[in-house]
């Protein structure tokens, strides 16, 4: 288990991480947030690459920058290093000098991903490099995998294959933290989400818990309706979108019934019904709500 206790990190004038207390348990955690929210910084702090300004990070009861902790954690940065003109065997040599690496497993991944074995890695495309590093990551015997922007540049066909491999690792009892600003890529594989907004923890929980926070209502109305007009009805809408004459309104769960009543009374819509919110939109809404709260 990785425990973060009141973690703070500042970069000159920027508070990258602010008083973050959090626990990462077994399974897959999606670390999401807008650009500059502090996702990569948080992963670099856990991996011991950056020093903490305040607080503590503990991995299985030991400080995160101790040798014992570092042996259990593998961090895949968004731009990992490889020596110039390196080939696959050079990558294996470098990483196996740091961690126990199962070469057989690595080369079986390479075959599965259809990566050229004899070419220089510098000739690989961005997606191919990413696949190579994911193959390296899961060939390393670690308990915790921190994957920064793990799926960047990977095509949808290969993405499904990689997700399958990640799920296999979860079955083995590993803890995997995947940071991404592309929420859709995390769909269906993550057990829980951690949402960061401006270096603060905005939301943290399983998808089912998060999906209870907001409701979406669609209604048809000929009159022009604005967000301000709904606010004037003492409602607190999170978003309002118009597609033709159909409005989509997102509102917090506890305001749902009240909102339905008032819209019905004031606008007499020809259609008024609740619709489901997909997980990608749910996360986006959580981020939006957290930003609004911080303001």
């Amino acid at each position: 288990m990785i425990e973060l206790l009141n973690v703070c990190k500042h970069f000159e004038k920027v508070d990258a991480i602010q008083h973050l207390s959090l626990t990462f348990e077994k399974g897959i955690t999606g670390l999401v947030g807008h650009n500059g929210a502090g996702k990569s910084t948080l992963l670099r702090l856990i991996a011991g690459v950056c020093h903490l300004d305040e607080g503590n990070i503990v991995v299985d009861g030991k400080e995160n920058d101790s040798k014992e902790s570092k042996q259990k954690v593998f961090f895949l940065p968004d731009d990992p290093y490889l020596p110039m003109f390196a080939k696959l065997e050079d990558a294996v040599q470098l990483y196996s000098s740091f961690y126990p690496l199962d070469q057989e497993k690595f080369y079986s991944y390479i075959k599965d991903f259809h990566l050229p074995e004899r070419e220089k890695i510098s000739t690989y495309s961005k997606g191919m490099k990413r696949q190579l590093f994911l193959a390296l990551s899961f060939s390393i015997d670690a308990s915790y995998y921190l994957l920064d922007e793990a799926f960047d540049g990977i095509d949808p066909f290969m993405l499904e294959k990689i997700k399958e491999e990640i799920l296999k690792e979860r079955e083995k009892g590993k803890t995997i933290i995947i940071s991404s600003h592309n929420i859709s890529s995390l769909e269906k594989i993550v057990d829980r989400f951690v949402i960061l907004v401006n270096g603060k923890l905005a939301r943290n929980g399983e998808m089912e818990t998060l999906s209870k926070d907001f409701r979406k209502v669609q209604f048809m109305c000929k009159r022009e309706i604005s967000l301000e007009a709904l606010c004037a009805l003492s409602l607190h809408p999170l978003s309002l979108k118009k597609i033709g004459s159909l409005y989509h309104l997102v509102i917090s769960s506890n305001e749902l019934e009240e909102a339905k009543k008032r819209i019905h009374a004031v606008y007499s819509p020809s259609l008024l019904e609740e619709v489901s919110i997909d997980s990608e939109e749910m996360i986006r809404l959580e981020m939006l709500a957290a930003r609004e709260e911080q303001r």
Binding site: R44, A47, G48, V49, D65, K67, K70, Q71, V73, F74, F75, P77, D79, P80, Y81, L94, F98, Y99
Partner: peptide, 16 residues
């Protein structure tokens, strides 16, 4: 002297 190299080398499981 390079962010990518620091990320790779400084997470390595060595003592301080």
């Amino acid at each position: 002297y390079k962010k990518s190299k620091a990320d790779t080398f400084m997470q390595a499981p060595f003592k301080e």
